[in-house]
Design a protein around this nucleic acid. Structure first.
Lengths: 246, 246
DNA sequence: AGGCGAGAAGTGTGATCACAAGTGCTTCAT
DNA sequence: ATGAAGCACTTGTGATCACACTTCTCGCCT
């Protein structure tokens, strides 16, 4: 009954719904985030992490049942992700994870190349005169990169996809650029599902060390090197996706 | 009762709700678009056209009443526009047209400069070996540009804002790049309201002839000239906005 | 007369029900 | 056994109601 009408195979991330720290509004009542926001965030994480295959059917009622909520929050979360291009309607007006086409892939790569280097430069700019913040960021990124290397060594493509998104999220959030970040997030939401499949198919071995140049460029505050590192990273990802057939 | 709780001044675009060709599904039944889609499209048009001032309060029930629909379609349209950054929550969890800050403005300008030239190049590419399509596009753009000049001559900033968005929409849709277009659309949705105010304040006189270089570049299929024309246009718009205080 | 508190109206959010349309499965006839 | 017709179920969409919270206003008390 994994929030899809048919097929209904139990997915591993179903536990995400229960082990998360959501329901404890009894905790000092300091923050009352809406239910639909919670549903949205978890669904988004699942999509960016590639835990849902492209074309994967979703349904309002199924998602609501899976999250133990009413249909309304599930509806709003789904509509929100549709607006961001992560989900889409099938020919019969049902909801599914957006499928990838060669054209869409080229567009996503082009847009990522156009936008993400700007985030990188902004990270350097915001941390320019705050060495502590810069070093803290580098350390956090190194930590994630280390975990990434472990995932690569294990051939754990699921962990890789999740950690890879964590890496860029941590990095780009430091850019302090919510508008551009939202655009990039939309792109990641669209690329996440197929990315996960590609990694699983091509293996993680060729991805070792991909993130080190970025960290190094941050440490030495070299905008050109950072720009090149980001673009290289995007190109590697996108060319990897392009190798699979749709 | 213009879909806001207080203030409630009658807005000119209220007629948009009634004179549109929405309800006639009796017409050959070829297309049954959902109500929320209709509400969304009209609200989006109003926002991009700058007919709603930044900070303008909206409400689900007010919008529903204005459109003569139930609260559900209004809700979904509002949530969708929130997801795209056009609307936002106020401190008291009410919905309003997103306000502009200097930081957001810089980000929007940066993103537009990063993305829109790509759409321009794609327009040239898609019409490269189809002179008829290219000339047709140029003619349609010229038509809009002529109307724009009339609006400028009249000092009609409302018509200018609407036609200007029509111009770019017509142009960018020819790029056949839905993913990138969606990103740009999000940026326009965020810039629309403030843009309209700026035009109204600074006047339309300085904007004459802004669109001709783009049309000319299309006709001679000159990518570099088109790129420069687009960037110039964006810079003019953004510097205009930057002149006003928030 | 002026400040203030209680109530009324309005808000977003969530839940539930109704309905048309689509899907797939069962079942009956050949 | 195989085909198709019919039915049961699921789907998205829209409508309506309930509820907690904010805001505004009108009337009351000092």
């Amino acid at each position: 009954m994994a929030f899809a009408p048919s097929g209904c195979y139990k997915v591993a991330w179903a536990k995400l719904l229960t082990d998360g720290e959501s329901q404890h509004d009894a905790r000092s009542g300091e923050r009352a985030v809406s239910i639909n926001e919670e549903v949205y965030k978890r669904l988004r994480k699942a999509i960016i992490g590639g835990e849902l295959a492209p074309g994967r059917a979703l349904s309002v009622r199924g998602l609501a049942a899976e999250f133990g909520v009413s249909t309304m929050p599930a509806r709003e979360a789904i509509r929100r992700l549709i607006a961001l291009g992560a989900l889409e309607f099938t020919a019969s007006r049902r909801v599914a994870v957006a499928t990838m086409t060669k054209e869409k892939l080229l567009e996503i790569g082009e847009a990522r190349l156009a936008l993400e280097p700007h985030l990188g430069i902004r990270v350097l700019r915001t941390t320019l005169d705050d060495e502590d913040a810069r070093e803290d960021l580098a350390l956090r990124l190194t930590e994630i990169a280390d975990s990434l290397e472990e995932a690569i060594a294990r051939g754990d493509s699921a962990a890789y996809a999740s950690l890879n998104s964590d890496f860029f999220y941590t990095f780009y959030e430091a850019a302090n650029a919510p508008v551009i970040l939202a655009l990039v997030e939309s792109l990641w939401l669209q690329a996440g599902p197929i990315m996960r499949i590609v990694i699983g198919r091509l293996g993680t071995s060729s991805l070792s060390g991909c993130h080190q140049p970025m960290i190094a460029a941050i440490r030495v505050i070299d905008g050109e090197k950072l720009d090149a590192a980001i673009r290289d990273n995007i190109k590697v990802s996108m060319s990897g996706i392009a190798q699979v057939d749709f």
